[in-house]
Structures are given as C-alpha cells and as structure tokens.
Nucleic acid binder design. Structure first.
Lengths: 134, 134
DNA sequence: CAGTATCCGGCACGATACTG
DNA sequence: CAGTATCGTGCCGGATACTG
C-alpha cells in the first residue's frame, strides 16, 4: 500500500511565499521544536485559563527562569500567547494561549501521538543500525 | 467557537511511556525541526526514487557536506531512510525514504501548510508587538 | 564520489546574583 | 513575584582541507 503526499500542492504553497514569509514560516515551525516551547504551550493550553509566571515554571519542570522568559517573549511576539500585567505589588503577570496557538497545537498533536505510538519501531531500527555498525 | 484538544488522551499516551521511550519520542520530533532534516526528507520523498549523495546536496540548497552527512546518518539510524552502497569506483551511495518516513511526512505536511497560510497573521502579530514595545 | 578530520564562531541553555 | 544582568559551557553548523 503506497502513500501519497501531494508534493505539487506543498511546493505551490511554498513558492507562493516571498523570502521573508518563507523564513518566517520556517521560524515558526522550528521554534516548536525548541526545548521548552511546546511544553510551555501545552501547559497553558491544558490549564485553559490564565496562568502566572511562577505557576508555569512549576509545571514546566526543569526550565530555568531565563529560558522560560525567553520562550514566553517569543510566543507573545508571534501572537501565540497573551501576556497581561497587573499593576500591583508584588507584580502579577498572567499568560494564556491564543486561539491561533490552539489551532497549531491541534496539528502538532497527531504528530506526537504518532511518534509515541511508533516508538517501538524506532527503538528496533536503532538496535538494528547499531548492530550493523558494531 | 471554542476548540478542544483531548489533553487527557495526550497525557495518557505520554504517561504510558517509560523514560527511555519518552526521550526517544522527543528526540524524533525534535529532529524534524533541525535545520536540514525536513528539507532533506522532503526532497527524497518528492523524488520517490533512490537519490545519490551529490544530487541530494544540489537539491538541498545551502547544506554543507558535513551537515548533510550527519542528517542522513541520523535518519538512517532511525529507520527513516535507507542507505545503499555500491562497491565500485568512484563510489556510489543511494538514499531513499522508507515507508515510515512517508507516514511521518503526511503528518508534518498539514502543519507546514497551516503555518504558511497563516504567515500573514504572524507578521501582523509581530508588527503589533514591536510597535507596543517601541 | 562520498565521505572524514579539524578549526572556529555563534548561540541555546543553565547557574547565579541582583532589582522594581 | 517576575523578571534583568552576567558569566560560563556545550553543541550546532559553516568553511576548509584531506582520503579511499
């Protein structure tokens, strides 16, 4: 059973982009695979409510303050999360996913599901490769 | 109109994995966003035929020999491409996508299509952000 | 032709200290 | 609380030279 991807369609969509748009698309997709981006986004989406910086840092286990700040700034800049600052002491900042981020996560979800359900195949492939190279 | 991702299901799938499996899943997905991986895989898939190293390097514009070699080794190790060496002088090596790689690409495709068709929204979001911060 | 080997700059990321 | 500032490390990826 052969699979078909419509590469003509894919290429058409890509060619239609100018250089700036192309690099931006690449940037968006690439960012998804950076170390904490997806996890952060997923926690915010799962909460389905505004979340404070400190709480987010608890849930995204292992992330440093610096990295979390950076990731959130990038996500905010790309319109994937909203950042609301409450003028009070001590300060309070709430983050939340936007509609467009949820759209994106819906497309990422099947990829993860597929990868995790096929993890056995990958382990087997590696074992075979390593044996061949041994 | 509210969107729903089945986070319960996602989490269930993740929890079911042991530590090794989890990190492998992460590795696979992460690799997809590395600089040349997806492009390489896409060229191989589009050709739908064995392709030589040099030809691949022409098509994946801008990749260095070193990077292409590394990417191909990783893909081979994970069972996403096959590598066939012909014992002749000058040497000839042919790469080709596997069935499982095509499955993966089918899941990645909609993500790219979505990102490129929404590139305008991202540009707008950035413009608004930069203006706010100006 | 299809790689290895080596050097190098940049930056992702962590740890720590400090601040409004 | 929610950051910034600074320092240090490791690795990604490019450039170049060499080899079976």
């Amino acid at each position: 059973m052969k699979r078909h991807i419509d590469w003509v369609e894919v290429n058409a969509a890509c060619e239609a982009l100018d250089e700036n748009e192309d690099s931006l698309t690449r940037e968006i997709v690439t960012r998804l695979a950076e170390k904490w981006t997806l996890w952060t986004l997923a926690e915010l989406a799962a909460a389905d409510a505004p979340m404070r910086f400190s709480r987010l840092m608890e849930r995204v286990e292992g992330v440093s303050q610096k990295s979390l700040t950076k990731v959130l700034r990038q996500l905010e800049r790309d319109g994937l999360v909203t950042r609301v600052v409450f003028a009070q002491v001590p300060p309070r900042v709430e983050y939340q996913t936007t509609e467009i981020a949820l759209e994106m996560l819906e497309l990422v979800h099947p990829l993860w599901a597929w990868a995790s359900s096929n993890v056995g195949k990958f382990q087997a492939a590696r074992a075979a490769y390593d044996k061949r190279r041994k």
